[in-house]
Design a protein around this nucleic acid. Structure first.
Lengths: 211, 211
DNA sequence: GACTTAATGCACTAACTAGTTACTTCTGAA
DNA sequence: TTCAGAAGTAACTAGTTAGTGCATTAAGTC
């Protein structure tokens, strides 16, 4: 059987992956409480027993899904290589990337919401993810310093607050797109609306940092 | 029995209110899916039968809670009477109010999150709330116009985008306070942190609108 | 004080759900 | 070829949950 043949009758790693992927979708759609283990098993074309075999419990499965989701975005951010860009371009790129990432991975938002509903109890000792996040903060800190040296950014900006704000203006718009579209009586998700929001966000952040 | 005596053996209105209040807490704590009807009945010191008598179903109860929550914040905003203030003061007051409201009513955030997880299906024909929200947008629009006439605000700012942004920078910080406190390795909820965030938010919005 | 109507309480059910038991089937190393 | 251990399955359990049927009790009306 060749290495690329994915139709092996037995493949622990592949089954594990299918379960993780199915779980991500189900948790994202229904939250931790609303997700059904049976549904995850079906989606993964696996047996429920396999879930308990590989992950131990529904909560531990959620933890695994959540950690994978955080590591995925942190890695994508790292690959931006913002250090090689002029400060203003780097910051704008990060704002745009963050927006695009949330747009392409709505499940990330829902997972984070679910985790916060549960007071982050699955993340309690996720040292790796916290470290990766501090790496992102350091990245932004470097951008800020470069911009200040150039004289285009003001100083005294807290890089954690800036990070939070960059996330916030995209995240809030997208997580509340359903209630928002009703309450503001406008379709928040058509291409023009999305584009308009992205430029508004870029403007917000650039005005925030400019000297 | 006096009018102020709240211990009447039968009081439909009071029971209804107790159920609504209890449901708000339970839905806020566990989301729509995670909330337990029995728990709501217990908290309300009512019988589960009463919930179905007054509200018909768990989903309809959730709808009632959600509508009450939206009307509450919209009314509070209206009472700010921002029309009587200079444009810059009015805007700053709105930013601060929004922050304080979320801080004092964390259940509002959780309810909105829950509703968006369910694609806003309970809000589908909430005309009243949409109208109230458009009233808020109009209020901000007036502030922007006043500021422009004074020459202190730039023009071309979309009042819906501004509204969304004002909400976003407070909402995101608070809804993600649990994961945030772990990932950023700082306590996001101590008084100094809260104060710092509020000034950051005011700064963000004022820089966004200034000419 | 009898009558009507609404409020309340209890006990039940039908469906569902996370997790398990006990088993079969496959794989690869010796 | 054998066989131990890993992968996989189906049926089950014990507990939970939204929702109901029905009887009872109180309040207001005449």
């Amino acid at each position: 059987m060749s290495a690329t043949d994915t139709k092996k009758k037995r493949d622990a790693e592949a089954t594990r992956k299918r379960i993780l992927e199915a779980a991500k979708k189900e948790f994202a759609k229904n939250g931790l409480g609303g997700a059904r283990v049976d549904e995850i098993a079906d989606r993964a074309k696996a047996n429920k027993r396999m879930i308990y075999h590989y992950f131990g419990s529904k909560e531990d499965l959620f933890r695994a899904v959540l950690e994978a989701a955080y590591l995925h975005i942190r890695n994508a951010e790292k690959r931006l290589e913002l250090d090689n860009l002029p400060a203003d371009e780097a910051l704008e790129k990060l704002v745009k990337f963050t927006w695009d990432y949330y747009l392409k991975h709505p499940e990330f938002i829902t997972l984070v919401n679910s985790e916060n509903l549960h007071r982050a109890r699955h993340l309690k000792d996720a040292e790796t993810i916290a470290d990766a996040t501090m790496g992102l903060v350091a990245m932004v800190e470097k951008i800020l310093l470069r911009g200040q040296e150039q004289g285009i950014f003001r100083d005294g900006i807290d890089s954690v607050q800036l990070n939070i704000t960059i996330a916030a203006i995209g995240y809030y718009y997208l997580t509340n797109r359903f209630t928002g579209s009703i309450l503001f009586k406008r379709d928040m998700m058509n291409p023009e609306a999305l584009e308009e929001r992205l430029s508004f966000n870029v403007e917000t952040i650039m005005r925030l940092v400019r000297a």
